[in-house]
Design a protein around this nucleic acid. Structure first.
Lengths: 250, 250
DNA sequence: AGTCGTTTTCCATATCGTGGAAAAGAGGTC
DNA sequence: GACCTCTTTTCCACGATATGGAAAACGACT
């Protein structure tokens, strides 16, 4: 039903990824529980094909082939997300976005615009800072606070509007609140007059993306937040399941 | 020496990627030459692990697991590039960059700054349009002209400075010239007073990235372009080999 | 030089993957 | 609505293929 050696090769790659993309043979052995000879042979195969590199100190690392495959697969995420984003637009009447955390930035990877005349438009691919956006807060709320703090330290939380939260303790409280209620808000913190509501997308036990709706302040404020968030959470759950239904994670 | 079923699983994934990330069983069979039963079993294995998805029409597509692995591996590209970028800095005395094409944008993925007081600084992760940058031209020159035209159509080639090439025929001539001499220039086309020189990085027969040096116009112009480009090409070749030494491509 | 922790190689064994062909399923046509 | 075709999925006996323990080679550190 399932090919053992392929599964094991995947175990090896995942072990490598969990070690930060680089590990020695014995570290992989410890993690996977596979015998040395087997791991070595699998690594050799992946090495020849460019999916694993060998550093000068004989340690192994994920290779360039994965960047290529990941790029193609990543380009499709926007396509997969489309139906969910459309459902969000239908539900809220506002522009829906999918965003992920990339380094210290939030990157918009897909969008379905609202059918209304006055609508949000956020160029796909745009990078914004997490502290002033609903998607950013939803993404960071799903990570350990220490990590969020590190991000804020590096980005400096610059003020974008009078509403931007620029105070670190206040932001940590805000993230706490986001975790509590399951959705994040942006009330004109990135751009005056623009409000957003975002929910995290879980792949197993990790937050891998965020879904948001955004539009003119008055229209967004007119919606029932808890009600909308509840529906969004369901959509996000469906999308998350589609991303990695069986992906245990590790 | 090498594990057959793992190699075949990789063949399947690559075939899928070459089909644009989505293909039916028989299309994969045609491409790989493997028997149906075998492919189906391999796909089943990849499916369970989340490295392949099955669409509602029973076709197969690359899965979310690859996005995760690709992300980890991609994060390391900057690390791998460091020594080469350092060599470039040593060679030219100017800031060296590594950039890739992502959609219609050029994205800087790594940088080693010049040791000089007055130096270029381009935030890693920044996205710029290809038509006004040396890296962008180097990247597009390595693609079919039709693809470059499509990019220009979508981006509109906005004027960034008086030197920006905003005329499509002129740009196509420029790309031709880049192909001819093997390196691309940016003479204050993105930012006045800043000049750059970029060379493509080949992984097998594909241009996957571009290396550049950039700095104040006077300093860059004082360098021997052909000489510098020649050295850069060597470095780019070494880097390309490291990225995918055996990666035939398909 | 000597020791330890790795990584790499080897080889007999039986496990595990193979692939042909048949069954099941989907879609299209008349 | 029934027939036909194309695609996907399942099945199973066979033997090629991966397995993994243990020994050898390697390299780093004392």
């Amino acid at each position: 039903m399932s090919v053992q050696s392929v599964e094991r090769a995947l175990d090896v790659l995942e072990a490598l990824a969990e070690h930060g993309g680089e590990a020695g043979l014995s570290e992989i052995a410890a993690r996977t529980g596979l015998p040395y000879g087997t791991i070595h042979r699998l690594l050799q195969t992946l090495l020849v094909r460019g999916y694993v590199r060998q550093e000068s100190d004989r340690r192994y690392a994920l290779g360039g082939g994965l960047v290529r495959l990941g790029g193609v697969a990543g380009g499709m995420v926007g396509v997969w997300a489309r139906p969910y984003l459309s459902k969000l637009v239908e539900l809220s009447g506002e522009t829906a976005n999918l965003a992920v955390l990339e380094g210290d930035f939030v990157v918009y990877v897909a969008q379905v615009p609202s059918p209304r005349r006055l609508r949000m438009f956020a160029e796909v691919g745009r990078r914004v800072l997490p502290h002033s956006t609903a998607v950013g807060k939803a993404l960071l709320a799903g990570r350990p606070p220490a990590e969020a703090v590190a991000v804020f330290e590096r980005t400096g939380m610059p003020r974008r509007t009078p509403n931007t939260i620029v105070d670190r303790p206040a932001m940590l409280t805000e993230l706490q609140a986001v975790r509590g209620r399951g959705y994040a808000l942006d009330l004109g913190e990135e751009e005056l007059g623009v409000h957003c509501l975002a929910v995290p997308v879980w792949d197993g036990d990790r937050v891998v993306a965020a879904l948001s709706v955004s539009g003119p302040a008055e229209r967004i404020d007119a919606l029932d937040r808890d009600d909308l968030a509840e529906s969004m959470r369901k959509i996000a759950a469906d999308f998350g399941n589609e991303l990695g239904p069986v992906t245990g994670g590790g």
